[in-house]
Amino acid sequence: MTRRRIAIIGPARTPISEPFSGGLTAHIGALTERLCQRGHDVTLFAAPGSDRKLPVVELAMNLRLSDDARQDVSMPPEVFMHEHHAYLGLMTSLARQRNRFDVIHNHSQHHLPIALSYLLATPMVTTLHTPPTPWLESAVQVGPTLAMRFVAVSQFTADQWSPLLGAVDVVANGVDCEHWTPGPGGTDLVWSGRMVPEKAPHLAIEAARLAGRRIVLAGPVADPVYFAACVRPLLGPDAHYAGHLDQNALSRLVRTSAVAVATPVWDEPYGLVLAEALASGTPVATFARGGTVEVVDETCARLAVPDDVHSLARAITEAAALDRRAARRRALEHCSIERMMDEYELLLGETVAA
C-alpha cells in the first residue's frame, strides 16, 4: 500500500500503555505499532502517559477555568470539561493544518471528533467500538455522515448502528499471534478483563466452583466498589486474583490455562480476550452475548445461556476437552492482526482515494 500520513485519535483519559486498561487501548496500541511497521507516517493523539515508544502527541488535558466558572452550579464534572477541551483543541488544530495528514482514524468514542469533522479537509474514518450511545448518536445525527467512513468491530455492532447509518463496514479486531503463542494448557481456568459489573467476574468464580475447577482472574480493578462487594469476598484457594498484568505475564497465564472463561452480562461489541485465548491455544467458555459469538466456533468454544452459571459450568467442562490446536487454527484464520491490518490498510486507502 502507498505510504500514508495517518492521524489516529485515541481516548483522552486512558493512556495507550501497558498494562493496558482494556481491549480498546490494547487495540489502538497494536494498530499504531503495525501501521508504523508497515511504513506509514503515524501520529497518535492520546492521553498523557501513553507509551513514548509510540508516535504519541499527548492530548491537552489542561483546561484552565476561572474561579467564577468553577462556581457555576451547572458545571459538569471537571474531568468531563478537560476531555471536552482536549478534543475541541485537537479538532480545531487539525482543521488549521489542512495538509498535514492524508487520513484520520478516530477511535476516541467521544462525540466531538464526529460532530466537528465538517471542519476538516482531511477524510476521516471512525471505528465503532461500542453500541450506539446518546452522545455519539447526537453527533452522527448532526454531523456530515456522508463524508465520514464508519467501520464496526463486529457484524453485531454494525447491525446495532445500521438504523442510523445504514450498512456499515466491518473490520473485526485482531491479535498478534506471534505474541499470543500456543501453550501446553493446564488445570486452572483463566478470566481476564476489567473488573466491572458488566463483565461479571463474580459469575466466572461461581461457574468455576460448580465445574470443580480453580480459576485465576487478571485485570484492572476499574470499579473498586464492585470489586470489594462482589469479587473479593469470593476469592480463596480456588479463586485467585493475579492483579493487573502486562501483556507478557498475561500471555503466560492464558496459554497455561485449561479454559478461558468470559462472563459478559451485556452485549460485548467484540471480545478481544477471546481472540487472545484462541491464539494461545486455550479453548473458550462464554455466555452467548453480542459480538463474542462471531469470534469463536464449535471447534474451539462452548457457548452458555446468558447469565446462567450452571450452563456456563457445563460449557467449561466441555470446553476443557476441546483440541487446543483447533483454537489456535481459529485464531490464525479469523483473529490475526495481519488480517485486520490488511483490511484497515485497504479501507484507509479507499477513503483517501474517494
Rank of each mutant, 00 (worst) to 15 (best):
R3W: 05
R4Q: 10
I6S: 06
T14S: 09
T14Q: 15
P15D: 00
E18S: 06
G22Y: 12
G23K: 10
G23Y: 04
G23Q: 02
I28Q: 03
T32S: 14
C36R: 09
C36L: 09
G39C: 14
D41Q: 10
V42A: 08
A47I: 04
D51L: 12
D51K: 11
K53S: 12
L54A: 06
N62Q: 07
R64Y: 06
S66V: 10
D68K: 15
V73K: 15
M75W: 01
E78I: 12
E78K: 11
V79E: 13
V79T: 13
F80E: 02
H85F: 09
Y87Q: 14
L88C: 04
M91K: 02
T92N: 11
A95E: 12
A95D: 15
N99Q: 09
N106A: 07
S108R: 03
Q109G: 06
H111A: 15
L112A: 05
P113C: 08
S117P: 13
A121L: 06
T130Y: 00
P131T: 11
T133F: 00
L136E: 09
V140F: 00
V142L: 10
V153A: 00
S154C: 10
D159I: 01
D159R: 07
Q160R: 13
Q160T: 13
W161D: 00
S162F: 08
G166T: 02
A167H: 11
V170D: 05
A172M: 07
G185Q: 06
G186N: 04
T187W: 01
D188R: 05
R194D: 11
R194L: 13
V196F: 02
P201Q: 10
L203Y: 08
A204G: 02
I205K: 14
I205R: 15
I205C: 15
E206N: 00
R209D: 02
L210S: 06
L210K: 08
A211V: 03
A211Y: 08
V216K: 15
G219C: 12
P220G: 14
P220H: 11
V221P: 12
A222D: 03
D223E: 05
D223A: 08
A229E: 15
L235N: 13
D238W: 06
A239M: 10
H240Q: 09
H240D: 02
A242S: 10
G243I: 06
H244A: 11
L245P: 10
Q247M: 11
L250N: 05
S251W: 00
L253C: 07
L253K: 12
V259Y: 01
V261C: 00
Y270V: 15
V273W: 05
V273T: 14
A279G: 10
S280H: 07
S280L: 08
G281Y: 04
T282L: 04
T286A: 15
T286L: 09
F287N: 06
R289H: 08
T292L: 03
V293M: 08
V296C: 01
T299K: 13
T299H: 14
L303G: 05
P306Y: 01
D307E: 15
V309D: 03
H310W: 11
A313R: 05
A315Y: 09
I316F: 13
E318L: 05
A319I: 08
L322P: 10
R328E: 01
L332H: 09
H334Q: 08
D342T: 08
E343C: 08
Y344P: 04
L347C: 09
G349W: 03
G349Q: 02
E350R: 11
T351V: 09
